[in-house]
Write a protein that binds this DNA or RNA. Structure first.
Lengths: 199, 199
DNA sequence: AACTATACGGAACCTTGTTCCGTTTTAGCA
DNA sequence: TGCTAAAACGGAACAAGGTTCCGTATAGTT
């Protein structure tokens, strides 16, 4: 799991309780507003939704882009953290498909972000790296477990799968909601095809 | 060739001379400013550079995006119009390589635009179509001539070549300036490889 | 309880897109 | 050539969004 709402570069200074509360509130508000109005939504709207003044918002997120980055990282963290949780509660194969479903849901909410990521703003340069660095091990451990249990074949790595699913999601615009689920199901069946069969 | 500075949808109404002068001036200024500061440059800066008030600018280009579109179309036109000119002055093979060089120069200036094109703004939806519709015949006629002269093989069409060169350009960021030229040269040599040989 | 570093709120400021309107210029015509 | 109406001009004014500033409030400490 990940600690809490630490904007990076805050080495060890205690954060006042009310400040932390506001940091979280703003991040949640931003997440909600981004989902509805896209990442270009006005800062004031986010502040209002969080029940906070713009001054407070800017104290914690000095630039608009910091807010976008924070929301993105938090969601990546949540997605990554779901892996061990699923692994603890399900069979390896179940855990794997469950996590991929979770992952597709994550990707689906990122339509607006995609444009921002490729906008050339260097503030977003760190995001793809964070994405890989965090999600690859998460999926990797699920894959390993499923391979060890003999439920899937051993010749696919986390990176390939991550990118394949992502591409499936972006290709299927936003129409038939379960098309992506069927496609991902197909992928997983493909993984099962060459399984060793040992349980 | 293409008439002059006709923003589309101007059926037959005479344009006053000073107006036409300003339209051209603004378009040229925008081209220059975009090249330096990118397509997000402030409108006022463009107006100032054109020696014109913002009111005048907005009279001819009611939206920022109209200006971007106009510049883009004008440059596409210039690039397309270069084809017959080259064909008239050079051997078919020469004309072809000359035009491809011209085309790579055009693509190189479009770094900033690429982001805008994929920004989701529907105002830019028409541009890719215009791009193809205008450039394909231009290159197509050069190809035909070169094939007829026996200088190149016959099994490559304009679309493939346009996209191939474009991809070469975007792949090679903006470093070694002539890498692209060498790669395009390679492509053309490839075209020559299976030539019929008849002159 | 008093004190201080920290945080809060929101008015104010700046930049940028867009509109409005009084003034100027062009082009046809007598 | 001088007259006139339509067309075009310029830039002040407006709207909206990002960012800063600073007087006030509060958490945490002694």
């Amino acid at each position: 799991m990940t600690e809490h709402g630490d904007t990076p570069g805050t080495p060890a200074r205690r954060v006042r309780a009310d400040a932390q509360r506001n940091i979280d509130a703003v991040r949640e508000a931003a997440k909600a507003v981004f989902a509805v109005s896209g990442v270009d939504a006005p800062v004031r709207e986010i502040a209002a939704r969080a029940g906070v003044g713009v001054g407070t918002l800017y104290r914690h997120f000095p630039q608009r882009s910091d807010l976008v980055v924070a929301v993105f990282r938090h969601e990546v963290d949540a997605c990554a953290d779901a892996a061990p949780a699923l692994a603890a509660e399900h069979e390896p194969g179940e855990a794997l498909t469950g996590w991929l479903r979770r992952y597709t849901r994550f990707i689906a909410t990122k339509r607006g972000l995609a444009a921002a990521l490729h906008s050339g703003d260097p503030a977003f340069d760190v995001l793809p790296a964070y994405f890989d660095q965090r999600l690859r091990p998460a999926l990797g451990s699920l894959l390993e477990a499923a391979v060890a249990a003999g439920e899937i074949r051993a010749d696919v790595d986390a990176d390939d799968l991550l990118h394949a699913v992502r591409n499936l999601c972006v290709a299927a615009d936003d129409d038939g909601s379960d098309h992506v689920h069927r496609m991902v199901g197909l992928l997983v069946d493909g993984l099962r095809y060459g399984a060793s069969g040992r349980a």
